[in-house]
Simulated assay, not measured.
Amino acid sequence: MVSEHGAGRALIQGIGTALPPHRLCQDDVFAKIEASLREDPHALRWAKRIFKQCGVQVRYTCEEDFLKPADQCTYLSTDKQQAAPSTSKRMEVYRRESVPLAEKAAEEAIRDAGVEASGITHILTVSCTGQFLPGLDTVLIHRLGLSARIQRIPLTFQGCAAGLRAIQLAQQIVSASPAATVLIVCVELCTIHLQPSGSREALFGASFFGDGASACIVSSGEADQQGGFQLGGGHSVLLPDSADEMIWEVGDTGFDLYLSPNIPKLLRTFLRDEVDRLLDGGALPPLWAIHPGGRGIVDAVQDLFGLEDSQTEFSRNVLRDFGNLSSATLLFVLKGMRERLREQGEGERSGVALAFGPGLTAELLRFTYVPSFVTKRESSYEYAGL
């Protein structure tokens, strides 16, 4: 049940998502991987296994190069003499493609929340797949018509968990300053870091990462006909003895990703205590927004807490239809969940959001689906004297 009203309350009012134009079927991606590994049968057997088991059917990419035949695709080239794109080249693609994708998601979130762009007090930009200066936040301020005096908080290179970290940070801002309105924008272009390699690490990334952007508005809220998510308590934790289980490093041909196959096992070992702490020993809620970092991660959470398939379907649907979009993914999950709850006319329902990133970091947050609430109409800048 909702226990906080007025001051201190934080709600996700609006959610927006965006995808790049190029659709990648999993079979087409594997065909390119297969061609690039024709001289490495051991790696090819491994690739077949992980592509079959990862739970992805379709992904999206900003890079048209992936639509070319295998012998012409520079990112996954079969020509050993052809150099893969350099990191600087990939960052050029990131700067060109990330801005319009982020802008589209942000515009949808602002419309969905019914707020004025000029009244937004904070912008949190999240990404781990690229960076440029002046940053994404400064470009969005001009494109979206945000205040030049808006408070800017970039969260960079924090991996898949950063989307939920941003939501928790926004909650803290709004709880401390109820007149604040926070815009969160996550954009990830994971596919620009795919590389022609037979290593297990590179093949993991090639099997399930995709591109996309998501955004949301967090504010204290006061009446609206549409439902949203009220944010409750949450925390972050570094799981013990796991610092080397997820690594994301800058290489000469893009960012090099290492994902350990031990991550699901680590979650089974340590996550129950963290969820018990989050819930203060209370009963498990009906709603679960799990970041689908891979099928094994969703399986681990479902098995650990004895969840029904209906409780993990939002995460599995996002993984199947879009892949792992790193920090942007969790808002895709929450958007799908919200749409279903609205369609079914559900009343208040409690939930838990979970995301995982390098460290190994776990982000945990309680939330409640609220069928209706009031949106404040006054200028948010009055509280700060801006």
Rank of each mutant, 00 (worst) to 15 (best):
G228C: 09
A35N: 06
G210D: 00
S236Q: 11
A202G: 15
L136G: 02
E308Q: 10
E274G: 03
T253V: 08
G323P: 05
R95L: 07
S310G: 05
P286Y: 04
P85V: 09
E188W: 04
L365T: 02
A179H: 01
Q131W: 13
L330E: 06
T87Y: 14
R38V: 00
Y381R: 02
I184D: 01
R200E: 13
L325K: 05
P20S: 15
L133A: 12
L257H: 13
G205M: 15
G232F: 02
R295V: 05
F332K: 00
M246V: 08
A102R: 09
A355K: 03
D309F: 05
S98F: 10
R268A: 07
A355H: 11
Y258R: 11
V29A: 15
T78M: 04
I153H: 14
G221K: 05
L365W: 07
P285C: 08
D224Q: 12
F373T: 07
P264R: 01
D224G: 11
L140Q: 04
G385D: 14
D28E: 15
F66C: 01
V352E: 04
T129F: 14
S77V: 04
G221D: 08
D276S: 06
S214M: 03
M1Y: 15
A83Q: 12
F208C: 03
D224T: 13
L279S: 07
R95Q: 12
A213Y: 00
T125F: 14
V185L: 08
A328S: 14
I247G: 00
G323N: 13
P196G: 12
V318W: 02
L189P: 08
P85L: 06
L194T: 03
A215F: 13
P100H: 05
E343G: 15
V218T: 07
V99G: 03
V370P: 01
S118N: 06
E4L: 11
K52L: 11
R316H: 07
G306F: 12
L124A: 13
G281S: 10
H42S: 15
V115R: 02
L364K: 03
L189N: 10
P100E: 01
E245I: 04
D244W: 05
F209I: 07
E249N: 14
L140Y: 02
L360W: 03
Q344C: 10
T121K: 00
P85S: 06
E116V: 01
S88L: 13
R349F: 03
Q172C: 10
L19H: 10
T87G: 14
L24E: 06
A7V: 09
A31V: 15
Q226R: 14
G281P: 06
E378Y: 11
P69W: 13
E382G: 10
A215V: 13
L203P: 03
T312I: 13
S326A: 15
K68C: 11
V250M: 13
S197N: 11
S350L: 13
A355T: 07
H5V: 10
A223Y: 02
E346K: 05
S199T: 12
P41F: 01
F209G: 05
P85T: 08
K335H: 11
Q26E: 15
I150W: 02
M1V: 15
L140D: 01
Y369G: 01
Q57F: 14
Q195M: 10
T156P: 12
L67N: 11
R277V: 06
E107H: 12
